[in-house]
Design a protein around this nucleic acid. Sequence first.
DNA 1: TCAGCTGCTACAAACGTTTGCAATACGAAT
DNA 2: ATTCGTATTGCAAACGTTTGTAGCAGCTGA
Lengths: 346, 346
Amino acid sequence: MPNRTSDIEQRATLKDIAERVGVHVSTVSRALNTETRSLVADELVQRILEAAEDLNYKPNRVALALRTRASMTVGVILPDIANATFPVLVHAIEATLATRKYSTLVAHAETGYPRKDTPLVDQLAARHIDGVILTTARRHHGIVDYCLKSSVPLVMVSRTEEDPRVSAVINDDIASMALAVRHVVELGHRRIAHLAGPADMSTGAARREGFIAAMREHKLEPSAIVRTKLYTREEGVLGAQEIFTIAPDTTAVITANDFLAVGCLDVIKASGRRCPDDVSVVGHNDMPLVDMIDPPLTTVRINYRQMGTEAALLMLRRLEDPTADAVMMTLRPKLVIRGSTGPAPR
Amino acid sequence: MPNRTSDIEQRATLKDIAERVGVHVSTVSRALNTETRSLVADELVQRILEAAEDLNYKPNRVALALRTRASMTVGVILPDIANATFPVLVHAIEATLATRKYSTLVAHAETGYPRKDTPLVDQLAARHIDGVILTTARRHHGIVDYCLKSSVPLVMVSRTEEDPRVSAVINDDIASMALAVRHVVELGHRRIAHLAGPADMSTGAARREGFIAAMREHKLEPSAIVRTKLYTREEGVLGAQEIFTIAPDTTAVITANDFLAVGCLDVIKASGRRCPDDVSVVGHNDMPLVDMIDPPLTTVRINYRQMGTEAALLMLRRLEDPTADAVMMTLRPKLVIRGSTGPAPR
DNA sequence: TCAGCTGCTACAAACGTTTGCAATACGAAT
DNA sequence: ATTCGTATTGCAAACGTTTGTAGCAGCTGA
């Protein structure tokens, strides 16, 4: 047996093709590139294409990135905490970027807010990232500054930015809350509370406003509005406890997130109430498995697959035409009625 | 206001430092590199370091990749179907790779088995990926051949390979099943069935064997063993139906996966039985939210965070010392007892 | 005094592309 | 016969690094 590395398949380069055809490498480059193919004689193009096929030539993206400063990769920044909705989001992003030969580099936002030296930014810059998709709902972020400053295309998901240069795809949180409120109102509820998300996440703020607006629409006064610090079950427990001490007569609580809803169910159960007989709960996002909990959660569904696809398409649009305007795309949410909501008691 | 692109921060290069210090770029390179720093005069090293600091120099990774053929990126191949366990896995991988300046490129395995032209392999090769972490349990895969052939370090998670050149971190599926079986046996169950995973996934096969071994240990005969085609709730329903037609007197079913367990609960409910009064169910993986379903699922927990970390460490080990042997690391599972298991009826 | 070593630095090639420019050849137009 | 496009190809520089080799001091030792 020969030594271990002897059988490495050496990838063919432009030079290999050039030698085989007996022509200069620049000619090969032009022949292979559809943009410049017209510059070389037809018959020669044929021979070069055949040789490329023979040698199974695949362009070296690293060299290409160095020369053209376009790395054909986009960075996807994920939140520092794992969230069940991200597999499908990332999958959708990666899949649609791959259709145009872009690769997906993932990174997680730094944990904690402390400014840190944002090595993440440097990392992205050092790799000549062509674009960034930000999926962290958390508000201020060094990445944004970096992208704006060096005019790297930026797309945000589930989050907006004032700057007109950034594209975004977001859920229509106003519509979400309108759906949720209308649903419980139609069930006869009048004492309705909101378990809101963190104020420093745009979804938290937007849904809170949406809730208030929807209540006003129905000429109702919220029985309570409580803010949480994180989208977690534990925070949901804390928040729900507060709601039921502030307004014990609440019969419906609309939450900003399924985790919060689950925490809410915990305290409902613990306090001897029953859901949905005594109090109804509606969640938000329709995360996997919330249809299996007890009771199955009524929630507002966000189509994360579509969200990922749209975000990637927005990115591709800007990458392939840098003059393209940034746009904001808002997706329509959908109410999914399950077992956690029912007629108001009495 | 000047034109829009005028204020792009031009990144400093070695040449910039060289000019400022009045020295050749190769000297700067050596001074900045700890390996070769001893070759340049101490006083000069100081001045160069200061200049680098001043100019906020960050090495250009793509140039580096071109020159050294090491891209400082590892590819992570995810399964084509989204799975709730992957956010934490990917997060752990990315975080530990990042500590050594490696980036994480994600890609999804091609959908469906048909051989396809494996553009994924080409994509990875074209980017000079330094290593690959495979998280798809599905058995044969072009990536494996590619990595072996071009001696790209390969680490598998939740999956083994015969070839001694690949490292792996896996769950101890034999131990998992031993825990699960012992638990229900101690509860008095004797008619125990196994709802097995797909045969073409190593977890499916391994857990099935583990179940059989564990049953033999207790000198019990399985009441039924049914294979599913996919780890989905729907397949779980189908499989569970089959179990209860083959062996209606089954009082405990041990599943290879939480989704299957949920499907199993569906048919138990639908058939008028109750869980855990009539039949107990134990899942596998401890996915998020399975503690919230009705009844809360007893399951075997896999520590995915640890799995991701270990996989990344294995990868780093091989990247930083190519002569390092491939190793297999098996993690100990843990039984989490909740509400879906109870004493055997009668 | 000079060969030879040592310590330091510069030069240049290389990694695999793209691309502006020059060079050649050919036919057409003057 | 000269000039001039036009079509095709080659040359070389460039992207930002690393690294083998060469050069040049100054020093040591005979």
